[in-house]
Amino acid sequence: MDTVQRRPQPITVDPVRMTLAALLVVGLGAIGMALVGQFAFGLVPCILCLYQRVPYAVVAGLSALGVLLPLTTTVRRRLVAMAGVVFLVGAAIAFYHVGVEAHWWAAATGCAGTPVGQMTMEQFQAQIFTPQKPCDQVDVRFLGLSLAGWNTIASLVLAVGCLLQSRRLSSGSST
């Protein structure tokens, strides 16, 4: 009885799909860290803190689509580029928050609440029971930067990384 020795087939890794999987981990990880800070360590987010979570959720959603759906490589590469643009928007939001914290510019009205004279009784009661944290109040600094400052840096690095990776993947193949 002849047994034919078969060589194992090499495992092929799709670099575009792996990039999207990494972005999915980044997006979910950032949101998870924010929630741990909020609920485990009692860091109360202001409205700008909450806005800074949105780009990570968008990137996680785009990445999940790219990983789970049977899309072409070209569409997946475009999702990586879109993630880069979303991270640029996230960097702008975070930088705006840094400016509010440093008093470079005034906060949006949602950061400080509505003046009592301009509220209805229902709005006033709602604000009493759910106090809003001012956006210029910094709870945590690490190496001299607030969390918004670190998010500005991280978002810029991620944006550049996504855009460079998208370009690299585009020059590597054409499917």
Rank of each mutant, 00 (worst) to 15 (best):
Q127T: 07
E122R: 06
G113Q: 05
M119W: 00
R141M: 13
Q137F: 04
P134K: 15
F142Y: 12
L147H: 12
V138N: 12
G144F: 01
G113R: 05
F129W: 09
A112E: 12
Q137A: 10
Q125R: 08
Q118W: 05
V138M: 07
G144W: 04
G144S: 04
Q137P: 01
F129N: 09
Q125T: 03
V116Y: 00
F124A: 10
P134F: 14
C135H: 09
P134Y: 12
F142K: 03
Q137M: 08
Q127C: 00
Q137L: 09
S146A: 06
A112Q: 13
L145C: 11
K133H: 04
V140M: 04
G117S: 14
M119G: 01
L145F: 15
P134Q: 15
T114K: 15
T120N: 01
G117H: 14
F129P: 01
P134A: 15
V116W: 01
M121C: 00
A148K: 04
M119D: 00
G149W: 05
Q127G: 00
D136F: 07
S146H: 06
S146Y: 04
C111Y: 09
L145T: 10
G117R: 13
V138P: 14
G149P: 06
I128H: 07
P131Y: 01
E122W: 02
K133G: 02
G144R: 01
Q118K: 12
L147D: 14
F142I: 15
L143H: 08
A148G: 08
T120K: 03
G144A: 05
D139I: 07
R141V: 13
G113L: 05
Q137R: 12
Q118M: 10
G144I: 04
G117A: 15
M121G: 01
G149A: 12
T130M: 14
